[in-house]
């Protein structure tokens, strides 16, 4: 494992911890999109089907369990926790999941490497992950005054995707036959979605003002 991959995984882990911290300690999910969280839960559930069939490493299995467990518990908190659910911006979080899920499923059925259940599900998870942040970005745009933790959560998620691209560049030059077009294209698309957010995030940081996305 190279440094970019490790840094990417750790950033991803940090993003989840920041979100859990906000929900668990402050008992608030204001500004957090349940739609995005549900899509992530689906992404991990469909991607990690191999957790029971292939053993890669202890690190790999543990991280998979963490991402599965945290994504489902975040969804549970927002939907069912008696205090947290009251802070959910239901009226603002109106992005429809199926607008993302159906095209991703169709694309996975037609564009994949092997036509097996596990492989199509894995490909679906890559496509879905690429666009799963959209409901969250739409919600941020509608929310005036984004709080620090929510801003940091999205920033860390974006940083994780960026680091994975460096990881692929590194692996491309150091490992023979490391060519994975589907993963790469989905990953680059996903990272580009954060470009606008990053711009405003750094602007607000530089000028020391509260993060606000233009409507």
């Amino acid at each position: 494992m190279n440094i970019f991959r490790l840094a990417g995984d750790m950033t991803h882990l940090a993003s989840v911890l920041v979100l859990l911290l906000k929900i668990h300690t402050i008992k608030s999910c204001a500004g957090v999109s349940l739609k995005t969280q549900e899509l992530y839960a689906l992404v991990f559930a469909t991607r990690y089907l191999d957790i029971v069939t292939d053993f890669i490493s202890v690190y790999n299995t543990v991280m998979k369990l963490i991402f599965l467990g945290s994504s489902f518990s975040i969804v549970w908190y927002i939907r069912h926790h008696r205090v947290v659910r009251r802070s959910y911006d239901k009226d603002q979080d109106t992005f429809r999941h199926y607008l993302l899920m159906i095209p991703c499923m169709l694309l996975a059925l037609f564009v994949h490497e092997k036509f097996t259940f596990k492989e199509v599900m894995w490909t679906f998870s890559l496509y879905l992950e690429a666009v799963a942040i959209l409901p969250q970005l739409v919600l941020l745009q509608r929310t005036r005054n984004i709080d620090n933790l929510t801003g940091q959560y999205v920033f860390l998620l974006g940083a994780y995707r960026g680091l994975y691209i460096f990881n692929w560049i590194y692996r491309y030059f150091t490992e023979p036959h490391f060519v994975h077009w589907i993963t790469w294209i989905a990953g680059v698309v996903q990272t580009l979605l954060y470009a606008d957010f990053f711009y405003y995030y750094f602007e607000s940081w530089k000028n020391n003002v509260r993060l606000q996305l233009p409507a």
């Binding site: 991803h12 890669i56 991402f67 092997k114 994975y164 036959h177 490391f178 994975h180 993963t183």
Partner: peptide, 10 residues
């Protein structure tokens, strides 16, 4: 290791 490149990622 024909198919594992990338599959070891999260």
């Amino acid at each position: 290791m024909e198919h594992t490149s990338g599959k070891d990622e999260l």
